[in-house]
Simulated scan of single mutants.
Amino acid sequence: MNDHYADPLREAAAHGMQKVVQVTPTAAAAVQVWLHVKAQRVREQAERERQAADALRTKQRAAHRAARLQWLPANDPAWLRTADLLQVSRAWGAALPYATNDPGAERALLRCESRLRELHPYAMNRYDRLRVEGHTPEAAMREVTPLFAREPCPRTGYPAPVRPQLPPVVRLAQEDFPHTIDKVVEACGSTRATAGATVASGMRCKSERA
């Protein structure tokens, strides 16, 4: 009688190959599903980005059109000659973000600055100095904005107003102490004499009118 002894290693290998053959189609299908899902997600992300980019461009175009309506009048010399400080400032601010890429905005910006120099030389002198020092138009205008609330053409060099002559006692009080009693008495007497003369003069005027 011949007994048959199976090889454990061979049987394990055969069993493993059988499992691989069974699992391979399932794994391949899972990989295909995963790739499909990943591709779908990529397409959806690209579509969202495209829509966001389109919405941003639409918003930017609308902002550009709105700004253009504000700075476009500054290219009209007739409008610019009669525009006040607030109108010119608004046109300048609207043109500033587009001056680099839009020739019309750049012209409006420069013309607004010329008009501002006519309306408020004091603030714009400071603005021009800041620009020469290397400040951007936005930074320079932000710094000089408070100056527009001041006098546009300040005048300097006028003499100080003449003050009335102070009484002796007041002048004495402004001096350094201590004072001698003689000076105090002399000043008080001079003040009383001045006051008496003033009262007497007033009484004479009343009697004359009567």
Rank of each mutant, 00 (worst) to 15 (best):
D7K: 04
P8Y: 03
P8K: 05
E11Q: 11
E11F: 08
A14V: 01
M17W: 00
V23T: 04
T24L: 05
P25K: 00
A27Y: 06
A28Y: 02
A30Y: 03
V31R: 09
Q32K: 00
V33I: 03
L35N: 05
H36M: 15
V37C: 10
K38G: 03
A39D: 07
Q40F: 08
R41G: 07
R43G: 08
R48G: 14
E49F: 11
Q51K: 14
A52Q: 14
D54E: 13
D54T: 03
A55R: 02
L56E: 15
R57I: 08
T58R: 09
Q60L: 15
A63G: 14
H64F: 14
H64I: 06
H64N: 11
L69I: 01
Q70F: 04
Q70H: 06
Q70V: 11
P73H: 04
R81A: 04
T82P: 00
A83S: 03
D84L: 01
L85N: 05
V88I: 07
S89V: 01
R90G: 10
A91G: 15
A95I: 13
A95L: 06
A95G: 12
A95R: 00
L96Y: 07
P97Q: 04
P97W: 09
A99N: 12
T100Q: 15
T100L: 13
P103I: 06
G104P: 03
R107K: 13
R107D: 11
A108R: 02
E113I: 10
E113N: 09
H120A: 08
P121V: 08
Y122Q: 05
Y122F: 08
M124L: 03
N125L: 07
Y127P: 08
D128S: 11
V132C: 09
M141K: 02
M141N: 05
R142D: 12
R142Y: 03
E143Q: 12
V144S: 07
F148T: 00
F148P: 02
R150I: 00
E151W: 05
C153K: 13
R155V: 15
Y158D: 04
P161Y: 01
Q165T: 00
Q165L: 07
L166Q: 12
V169Y: 04
L172Q: 04
A173E: 09
Q174P: 00
E175S: 01
F177E: 06
D182I: 09
K183S: 15
V184G: 07
S190Q: 14
T191S: 14
R192F: 15
A193N: 15
A193F: 08
A193C: 09
A193G: 10
T194Y: 11
T194N: 13
A195R: 13
G196N: 13
V199T: 11
A200D: 13
G202F: 12
R204C: 09
